[in-house]
Write a protein that binds this DNA or RNA. Structure first.
Length: 440
RNA sequence: GGAAGCGUAUCGAAGUGGUCAUAACGAGCCGCACUCGAAAUGCGGUUGCCCGCAAGGGCACGAGAGUUCGAAUCUCUCCGCUUCCGCCA
């Protein structure tokens, strides 16, 4: 959400930002909201003037009552009661206008970073870098479900019966690999100064509305029947929500967490839920990182966080590329976003989106009330009022999707799967998966 | 899940329909004084949001709604906390 003052003062820039996102239908909203805001402030002023008069009168009644001047008090009461209707009307108008302004403000996209390339949709995202050697094997790499089945590592038939499409049973070495990757990712981030956290997996609607746009909420979030609770789509939701309505001391920033959680997503409208396998599923697990920081520090944190993920994949010997989200593909709350895509030896392209690093600027902070206490320097001139923090989030590792990339890239011609050095400690020292199966 | 109690500033806590919310009282924190320095003591300061160029005004006592000329105070709903009971990993 933007600052209404910013919109008022920079309508041109706001419109330009909307155009760059190819959301021309929202252009008229800018002038609409400025006009509504003006009406709102006028109504507010009128209502406040009336309230001031009422407060003053009520105080006088109190004084009269104390002096036992009942007649005068009653006369005053009638006088103020007469103002009641007008005040009610103005209060209703004020409320209505405020709601209208907010409704539009929630729909206006966040101002993007200048560095975001202009483009209509995901086809115009821009490759930034490739890391690792993208290999094309000299044998045929099967579909990931087949690789997993060869390791006796997945049971989709049973999952369809118990839960439906988009769910899975992971078994044996594949399940262990799943846990190993998460544990390794956790420690990888702890080593980089992030605090490990296990958050609530359900959150209230007020928090949901703070961390994402309405459209996202509809398409992603599972609601618990009869409760004001939603299953989280990512631990980012709980982790940013953790800071709701806080006024933070400068010294307490940056806040850096790496959080683990299962993630639940409806994937409404996502064509791909029909995709066979575990690429797009209703339930997965994720090691995440989030940062709450000073506004001026968010671009630097963005780079650092992105590098962490790239380095993690490098250490797992999985080639990746970074792909900058273009303006049209960038979610409305985001200032900037870069995806990490893993190499698919089977498809011979970077096919797997395994991470997404985003700078939300003050969008979530403004919705949730995450503020920083301004300097309290003695002199008035140095005194800086309180201001909104910036929030960022990024994937560390999200299996089982990332296991697809893992298995494809580490599959050997023999059908076994190579376990990279860094993961062996989490796999009981195993260097190769599938050897026993081959032997028998 | 049942019962009772509670939710006021950084913390403890008073206020139970108006003259106490720039929130009593106590503590903490910051500054100053005293001191060689410190402790102790004394004095001063110390919530946030909104409108406004300003003067000023409005709002907030967990959240929301209601009663009233007027609500921290009365009523209702919700959220949270504490204690006891029940249940449970």
């Amino acid at each position: 959400m933007l600052d209404i003052k910013f919109v008022r003062q920079n309508p041109g820039a706001v419109k330009e930002n909307i155009k760059r996102k190819f959301q021309d239908d929202k252009l008229t909203l800018v002038d609409d909201v400025i006009a509504l805001d003006e009406q709102y402030r006028a109504a507010l002023q009128q209502a406040e003037t009336l309230r001031a008069a009422r407060n003053k009168g009520s105080k006088e009644i109190g004084a009269l009552m104390a002096q036992k001047k009942l007649d005068e008090a009653n006369a005053k009461k009638a006088e103020i009661a007469a103002m009641g209707a007008e005040l009610d009307e103005l209060a209703a108008l004020e409320k209505e206008l405020a709601a209208k302004v907010r409704a539009i403000m929630l729909v206006l996209p966040q101002m993007m970073d200048d560095s975001v390339p202009t483009g209509k949709d995901d086809s115009e995202n821009v490759e930034l870098a490739t890391v690792g050697e993208a290999k094309v094997p000299d044998f045929e790499v099967p579909y990931h479900v087949e690789i997993m089945e060869n390791l006796a590592g997945v049971d989709l038939d049973s999952a369809r019966k118990t839960s439906g499409n988009g769910f899975y049973y992971l078994l044996g070495d594949v399940a262990r690999l799943h846990s190993a990757v998460l544990s390794y990712a956790r420690d990888f981030m702890i080593d980089r100064g992030f605090t490990y956290c296990i958050p609530p997996y359900m959150i209230r609607s007020s928090v949901v509305q703070g961390v994402m746009s309405f459209a996202e909420m509809e398409g992603m979030m599972y609601k618990i029947e009869g409760e004001d609770l939603y299953l989280i789509g990512t631990s980012e939701h709980s982790m940013i929500g953790k800071f709701i309505d806080t006024l933070n001391a400068k010294e307490s920033l940056p806040q850096r967490y790496t959080s683990y959680s299962p993630c639940f997503r409806k994937e409404v409208g996502a064509h791909g839920i029909e995709e066979r396998g575990v690429f797009r599923v209703h339930q997965f697990e994720k090691q995440e990182m989030i940062v709450v920081c000073e506004p001026e520090d968010s671009p630097a944190w963005f780079e650092k966080m992105l590098n962490h993920t790239v380095e993690l994949f490098e250490s797992l010997e999985i080639p990746v590329r970074t792909l900058e989200c273009c303006s049209g593909d960038l979610a409305d709350l985001k200032v900037k976003s870069v995806d990490v895509e893993a190499w698919s030896p089977r498809q011979q392209k970077y096919a797997f989106e395994v991470g997404s690093c985003s700078n939300l600027g003050d969008a979530q902070a403004r919705r949730l009330g995450i503020r920083i206490r301004g300097s309290s320097e003695a002199t008035e001139l140095d005194r800086r009022s309180n201001y909104y923090a910036h929030t960022l989030n990024n994937t560390v590792a999200a299996p089982p999707r990332m296991l697809i990339a893992f298995l494809e890239n580490h599959l050997q011609a023999s059908g076994t799967v190579h376990v990279p050095e860094v993961l062996r400690g989490y796999m009981g020292g195993v260097e190769t998966l599938g050897e026993k199966a081959n032997a028998t």
